[in-house]
Design a protein around this nucleic acid. Structure first.
Lengths: 142, 142
DNA sequence: GTTGCTGCAAAGTGTTTGCACCCTG
DNA sequence: CAGGGTGCAAACACTTTGCAGCAAC
């Protein structure tokens, strides 16, 4: 059975004269199974659990494809590696990152978003995206 | 004449049994002269304009020292390199980053900060720092 | 069969580290 | 004159790329 995400990917692929491959299916599947905010390395480890001979380069290339097709977006929490987020099922949200245990709590606040728009407008600035990260300690790591 | 920042650094250095060197003075001076949000490479280029034989490693090591002494803080705007901000003279602020020309507009909004604290409290989260970046286009790059 | 895709290894990029010598305190 | 600091080059961690063979359409 094809998930909604598989269809999105397939459509993007056929629209751009690309090809659907076993590896791309695998990476997409693993990406969807993974918790949100995976790193390439983590995703690679997950993928190779079931398909041992997929290269790390393919994971990176497929992640780039997922980004282009709108299924994933790239995040950087400043820990030295990029992390990837599900974009199709999760809508936009901000993050609280526990610097002790790495836990990530997602949240959104419409008032903050509105204030951002106002501030931008006051400065003649047009927002295309934003990110709000709170760093600190979660309730388990006090 | 010693700037306030030089005094802060010297105090940190003597408090920790470290040493003041020509190179550290140079890097600090260049850092203060630079626009805010320099990268290590940019700072290195500025420094070597006047002191040609300073190593890039020294710039990195001195930046780490400036961070420890509270004069600088590390930023990451997702462009693949860390950037460094004046901390002693500038107080905390958020950023609007023009993805076209790279211009950075700084701002703060007390209501947003207050909302952040409330949201964190609701989740049992203790904030130690936060960052809010708005990406888009400035008025010159519409 | 053409053209894109893959795995591998090599190259790249930004940053850190090991080491012998140098300089500050 | 002891111990930290420096420049250099090598090492690092993460990511990207070149290439020859392979597979999808």
């Amino acid at each position: 059975m094809a998930t909604k995400e598989e269809k999105v990917l397939e459509e993007y692929i056929s629209r751009n004269n690309l090809k659907i491959t076993r590896q791309r299916r695998c990476v997409l599947k693993a990406f969807l199974d993974c918790e949100n905010h995976v790193s390439a390395e983590e995703l690679y480890n997950t993928v190779t659990e079931t398909e041992s001979n997929i290269g790390l380069a393919t994971v990176y290339r497929t992640l780039a494809l997922l980004i282009r097709s709108g299924l994933a977006s790239e995040m950087d929490f400043g820990d030295g590696q990029k992390r990837y987020e599900h974009r199709y099922k999760h809508k936009h949200h901000d993050h609280m990152i526990c610097t002790e245990c790495g836990k990530i709590i997602e949240f959104t606040n419409p008032i903050i978003e509105k204030l951002q728009d106002e501030i931008a407008a006051q400065n003649g600035f047009t927002i295309t995206s934003h990110k709000l990260d709170l760093f600190g300690n979660c309730s388990d790591c006090k």
